[in-house]
Design a binder for these strands. Structure first.
Length: 599
RNA sequence: GCGCUCGUAGCUCAAUGGAUAGAGUACUGGCCUCCGAAGCCAGGGGUUGUGGGUUCGAUCCCCGCCGAGCGCACCA
């Protein structure tokens, strides 16, 4: 059976005749071959949210829907319905508009009632009721989770903006949301960063150890080396000969380069002993602190910073692998332990413990996701870069192997950001140090424009980021269009000498223009939009909504004067303006965008 | 080669399986003696990559092809 079988949308279009204008409701009737359309009674619930009239009482057609096989088979039913529906006092007319459609014409009072609703609810307008009972209630959103091996770049910025807006949206929609950052503080990448800093440090003491091309090149590595020198002098200096003693000779290929790097890491650990932990800890702390500050400045907050290393220290990784082993999902081959993820739909089996005894990143990720599930979230949402898509089956497979319901994990992939400079694509890589940082972007474009720009496309659309364009476009970024509407309303309200609190009780009857009805309809959409955007993990829908809302306001503002002499009209219009400002505030704050009083 | 994602106006992007596929931008022409012109109004702009299928109805679901991005490690 087709899902739902009933569709419904409010069409925001209107014609030139104000009070005759129908608020249009689309109703899809079941195809005739479905003899018992179970969803039909729920059609009775269709009108209310977007049109701001009370829900219809439950209604059920008392005659069979037509069974003819003609292509107009839904039409006879729509002829019947307007006659059968008990007319609400808010509806003046219901008429068939075409096959499957009925147009309902609402009274002016029904169309403007949302203004009072918004003003009464204030910041809570649009907020969904808290989930209870069997419904999914507690959610976790994990996002960014970049390796703390260098500054965040514009790609991380997209994940940060998306995840933060999504989390706010879900919380506003009525869920309990935990925002989490997974810190990859264990593993080879951190060792490479530590050895990079140490080698730069040795350079400061003129030890002739060549800096490998595949170590971290960024200038921030030198800065950290200087910090270490300043704090501890030559304590970590070892002669170049000693360092190079355990490094394999120069080779040509990538494999040799990686082997040399591993040799240098080994040298560092051997020569420095306990002090290696200091260098490692120092660079980790520096990068994490920087990353955290960067995100906070961007308006991106996390409730939990979860350490990968803690999974090892508490033995969770070993336990997870042991459990899988006991349940027969692990086998030995070539000295390594493999998880049979193909049994769960993955392309190939995956190593969890290498022949050298070290666990893979996958092993700690299994433990991590198990830990997430154990914390009792009804839904775990991972926001990943699109390049990790191949990773999904093995993680879900591992969860299934534990007998967990892998559907509790949703992975949202955020497509790549390609960076263009002077019309040329710039390859971004943290190791090469060639990238534009989120900080640079924020400084040049501004936080508000940046947050909004990221939200102007859905996350599964690749984003070409032209830095020069971003700068030039920052002046006509749509965010200013939205903020401008807010500032305009503030300005008008400031020029009016009345008490804003009284506007909630204003008589709305003077609102009669079509643009006023259109603006009201847009306001009324907000709560429904919050729910659908949250359901679809689609915060971009909110950004587009705010553009539309601002557009409806600007259009009305240019057509009608608000501060007119006629007192009832003035109050009604100011009430509508105030309600608009409220919804702009509620929406912008979810996206982490400020709401300036003037600009 | 296999897999995942994506192809919509000149450009950047929207669109629960529904009515004539919409915005912005660019271009053209109008609107400040009046609450903020970072604004408004009116225009032209489309075979939704392509060929089939399912459906009363497809930008949306299914299959083929073309094109783009990304994956296909005992890295993370």
């Amino acid at each position: 059976m087709r899902k739902g079988g009933l569709g419904r949308t409010i069409n925001g279009k209107y014609n030139s005749q104000p009070t005759e204008t129908p608020c249009i409701l689309k109703i899809w009737l079941y195809p005739a071959h479905l003899t018992a359309p179970p969803a039909v009674p729920s059609m009775s619930a269709s009108i209310s949210p977007a049109c701001c009239v009370p829900r219809w009482p439950a209604w059920r057609p008392n005659r069979a829907l037509p069974r003819s096989s003609s292509n107009a088979r839904s039409r006879p039913a729509t002829v019947i319905l307007p006659r059968e529906l008990p007319l609400s006092p808010y509806v003046t007319k219901a008429e068939v508009a075409g096959a499957g459609f009925i147009n309902f014409t609402l009274t002016p009072a029904a169309r403007t009632a949302v203004v009072g609703t918004v003003l009464a609810a204030g910041h809570a307008f649009g907020r969904g009721a808290a989930r209870s009972g069997k419904m999914a209630r507690r959610l976790q959103v994990e996002f960014v989770s970049a390796n703390p091996t260098g500054p965040l770049h514009v790609g991380h910025g997209r994940g940060a903006a998306y995840g933060a807006s999504l989390a706010s949206l879900l919380a506003f929609a009525g869920f309990e949301v935990t925002r989490e950052y997974y810190v990859n503080d264990a593993g080879r990448q951190m060792d490479i960063l530590a050895v990079s800093a140490w080698l730069r440090y040795l350079e400061l003491f003129d030890e002739p150890v060549p800096f490998p091309p595949n170590a971290y090149q960024g200038g921030y590595v030198r800065e950290m080396a200087e910090q270490v020198k300043l704090a501890h002098g030559d304590r970590y200096v070892h002669p170049a000969e000693a360092v190079l003693a355990c490094v394999p000779p120069h080779g040509e290929g990538d494999e040799d380069l990686e082997a040399r790097l591993d040799g240098l890491i080994l040298a560092g650990k051997d020569l420095l002993g306990e002090d290696w932990l200091y260098i490692h800890g120092h660079v980790l702390n520096e990068q994490l602190t920087d990353c955290r500050a960067d995100l906070e400045e961007f308006g991106v907050h996390f409730d939990v910073w979860f350490s990968e290393r803690s999974l090892y220290e508490t033995g969770m990784v070993a336990r997870a692998v042991a459990t899988l082993e006991k349940s027969g999902h692990i086998y030995l081959q070539d000295g390594a332990k493999w998880f049979n993820s193909t049994a769960f739909g993955d392309e190939k089996d995956r190593v969890v413990q290498r022949d050298n005894g070290l666990y893979t990143y996958f092993a700690s990720d299994i433990a991590y996701h198990l830990n997430k599930f154990e914390r009792g979230f009804d839904k775990v949402i991972d926001v990943w870069g699109a390049d990790h898509h191949g990773y999904i089956p093995r993680v879900k497979g591992a969860l299934s192997a534990f007998g967990a319901n892998a559907d509790r994990l949703d992975v949202t992939l955020v497509q790549f950001v390609s960076l263009f400079r002077d019309g040329h694509k710039v390859s971004m890589s943290t190791r090469s140090g060639e990238y534009v940082t989120l900080r640079q972007l924020r400084a040049e474009v501004g936080n508000d424009a940046c947050r909004f720009f990221y939200m102007l496309r859905k996350c599964d659309q690749a984003l070409d980021f032209d830095l020069d364009l971003a700068k030039s476009e920052s002046n006509d970024n749509p965010v200013y269009y939205v903020q401008y509407a807010h500032a305009r309303i503030c300005s008008v309200l400031a020029q009016w000498d009345g008490d804003q609190a009284t506007l909630a009780q204003a008589d709305l009857a003077p609102l009669q223009h079509e643009r006023e009805f259109a603006l009201c309809a847009r306001l009324a959409e907000f709560p429904e939009l919050i729910q659908s955007a949250a359901r679809d993990y689609a915060p971009h829908a909110l950004a587009f909504y705010l553009k539309d809302l601002a557009g409806d306001f600007h259009s009305w503002y240019n057509a009608e004067r608000l501060l007119v002499d006629d007192a009832p009209t003035r109050l009604a219009r100011l009430a509508l303006a105030l309600a608009t400002r409220q919804v702009l505030q509620n929406g912008l704050s979810l996206l982490g965008v400020s709401q300036p009083v003037s600009m």
